[in-house]
């Protein structure tokens, strides 16, 4: 009973990214960097050590010219729920520097608690977690544009997308002042969703039937949030990470690229039982 009541109340912020509309322009990446004081260094072309909370991947269908197709896939932190909040990265952190918030469904990362063991990075199959290998250095004048809402990270800690949680905090502050405790859908939007020039990113409460994300993804909470919309999929659904970022594509090969399948496997049967 109690569990049920709790469930009703809990929000589950998530995203639906329409891959048909995503143009791969990279605005989400930069909007995120600018919003979250993400540092940069002289050479960022080695993507193995380039911090990008939001990273846009380029997918190909593997066919030769001229049948080749490409699709872009923006990848923020998936804010996995796993089973009951046991996100792959959260349960492994030895110092409780990251947690799963049951009230919002957001996976946090506390930079000042993190001591840099990087176990969470190993645990995350999405490569959504980034380590500060270098001291973040801003050119002299450039520190002026740093936002006070997100603390700059120091060398030696892990960081990742927070679904712009500070925007939630600021919106809540305003709500409190106005005597409210509930936010409207547009009061809390992530920087990437707001910036996307193609309008491909939708953000909101997956548990709220009035929110657009819920209507698009039709998540089935009884079955680990599985999407009810046949064009919607999640990355690595079969691992049971229960991510809160849903992708939408009308193309079969794109949907299949979201997960691993062994040859001749009956896809539908295997994980939609």
């Amino acid at each position: 009973m109690k569990e049920e009541g709790k469930h009703k109340k809990a929000k589950k912020y998530g995203m639906v990214i329409n891959l048909d509309e995503c143009t791969g322009c990279g605005a989400c990446m930069v909007a995120c960097m600018a919003e979250n004081n993400v540092p940069f260094k002289e050479d960022e072309s080695n993507k193995l050590d380039s911090i990008a909370w939001m990273r846009v991947y380029k997918l190909t269908n593997g066919k030769p010219y001229p049948e080749a197709e490409i699709c872009y896939l923006p990848r923020p932190c998936m804010h996995c729920e796993g089973e009951h909040g046991h996100a792959p990265c959260v349960s492994v952190c030895p110092a409780t520097a990251t947690d799963y918030n049951h009230e919002t469904g957001i996976v946090s990362q506390i930079y000042t608690r993190c001591f840099g063991c990087r176990y969470c990075m190993v645990a995350c199959p999405y490569h959504a977690r980034y380590f500060n290998w270098w001291d973040p250095v801003w050119p002299e004048e450039s520190t002026k544009y740093l936002s006070p809402n997100v603390s700059p990270r120091m060398r030696g800690v892990v960081e990742k997308c927070s679904f712009c949680f500070h925007r939630y905090q600021l919106a809540m502050d305003k709500a409190y002042l106005e005597g409210r405790t509930v936010l409207e859908e547009d009061e809390y939007q992530t920087s990437c969703a707001q910036a996307c020039p193609a309008g491909a990113i939708t953000f909101g409460d997956l548990n709220n039937p009035e929110h657009k994300v819920h209507q698009l993804a039709k998540p089935d909470n009884k079955h680990g949030g599985r999407p009810g919309n046949p064009n919607v999929f999640r990355l690595l659904e079969r691992l049971g990470t229960n991510p809160k970022v849903y992708y939408m594509s009308s193309r079969e090969w794109v949907r299949q690229a979201g997960d691993n399948y062994i040859n001749n496997e009956d896809l539908a049967k295997n994980y939609r039982h």
């Binding site: 605005a27 960097m33 600018a34 910036a195």
Partner: peptide, 26 residues
């Protein structure tokens, strides 16, 4: 201090969206 540039909602050209150059104008 300017801390962020965002697309202007309701503008006839971009209505809230912005490209990565515009976003990194700071």
């Amino acid at each position: 201090r300017v801390v962020k540039i965002e697309g202007m909602k309701g503008h006839p050209v971009n209505d809230g969206g912005l490209c990565l150059m515009g976003l990194s104008g700071l």
